[in-house]
């Protein structure tokens, strides 16, 4: 809700002809100077509406909004175990920038991939050169 109050333009919802929510995306823009970037906070597609390319469509919207804000890149965090999602993001041009150790707390903590895609402003793709070493969540800037 706080996100909606702050970055309403980063909210998109996809509705079916029957008025069902097929999927949604929410995000934000943050960071300083060349770290100014769009971030995907949540992306969700209802099971019934998967394999229709909805995630791609929603991600495009978020990237386009970030382009307009003159962001350098878009990033997102995903569970390393979520192979399906990682593959989708790869197909959409995202690469693994770094691993964040035990980012997801739970019964058993899980690592996250920080995946990134450079936008047009980052002409040389500097923002997506992978880090060699994993980082801890508390070291995230």
């Amino acid at each position: 809700m706080q996100y909606l109050a702050h970055w309403p333009e980063y909210f998109q919802i996809a509705e079916s002809p029957q008025g069902h929510v097929m999927g949604y995306i929410m995000g934000k823009a943050e960071g300083n100077s060349d770290n100014w970037h769009g971030h995907v906070t949540a992306l969700s597609v209802a099971p019934e509406y998967r394999k229709l390319g909805l995630a791609a469509k929603l991600m495009n919207t978020l990237e386009e909004v970030s382009e307009r804000k003159r962001c350098f890149f878009v990033d997102l965090f995903v569970r390393v175990s979520n192979q399906v999602a990682v593959d989708i993001y790869r197909k959409l041009g995202y690469t693994i920038y770094r691993v964040v150790l035990e980012y997801y707390a739970g019964e058993k903590d899980e690592d996250a991939y920080d995946m990134r895609k450079a936008l047009s402003r980052d002409v040389d793709g500097k923002s997506v050169i992978p880090l060699q070493h994993p980082v801890r969540p508390e070291d995230l800037e």
């Binding site: 809700m1 706080q2 909606l4 109050a5 702050h6 309403p8």
Partner: peptide, 22 residues
């Protein structure tokens, strides 16, 4: 309480279209 705080944020960030929605 949360909604009320969201209203405050909406003024802060100029998200006027969201105020009546909240």
């Amino acid at each position: 309480k949360e909604m009320t705080e969201c209203l405050i944020s909406s003024y802060k960030y100029g998200s006027f279209t969201k105020i009546n929605e909240f």
